[in-house]
Amino acid sequence: MSDALSDGGSDHDDSQEDVMTPVELIAKLEEAWLNEKFSPDLLENKSEIVECVMEQLTHMEANLQRVSKGDTKASVHRMEIDRIRFVLSSYLRSRLQKIEKFFPHVLEKEKSRADGDPSYLSPEEYAFAREYLANTETYLKAVALRHMPPNLQSVNMMKAVPEPCLDSFVFLRVKERQDNIMVEPETDDQREYVVDLEEGSQHLMRYRTIAPLVSTGAVQLI
């Protein structure tokens, strides 16, 4: 019985990509979770991480099936699974919330991306966004638009739904030192200036200035 549990962590390493241990995988998931939570815009999807974590969880749960209920070890494993599952679903949920909020813009961005570029949405999220758009349009038509005069019967979703506000302020922690980050002035009589972001330091600034650093992983939103 204890063999079944001990296997859980170790024999799994082989099926992972060689570069990431489960420990790093969980750390990556937590990073992605916090970044997604605090960024005003939808970030690139991390379906690779999500899939790997799901695989780990399913594997561990399958192992736990074989263990009796009262086992101390098993209960510790279950608690850990619950914690990881919470982070995972909170991550996916905050992505869905953003898709619901900005769906026309998200779809537009997805349409206009170049062929080789990585997709912003996972296939499931893409289907969700498409369906959400179609349903909203049908709903608006059924409830209001069809009663309008013919020239007012269409609505431009791109204009009707707000865009993500990239000028929002965010809190961030620096993971890799960055020099000469331009800070735009708030008022006309101030001049723009540059700051150096030192490793480990924490800052409050506009998302727009540091958005590229979030996707490269050089800074962590907090």
Binding site: S6, G9, V23, I26, Q56, K73
Partner: peptide
């Protein structure tokens, strides 16, 4: 106040 072998959690060993 109990004894137990190493636990191999996904997030590290205990």
């Amino acid at each position: 106040n109990f004894s137990l072998d190493k636990i191999y959690l996904i997030g590290g060993d205990l």
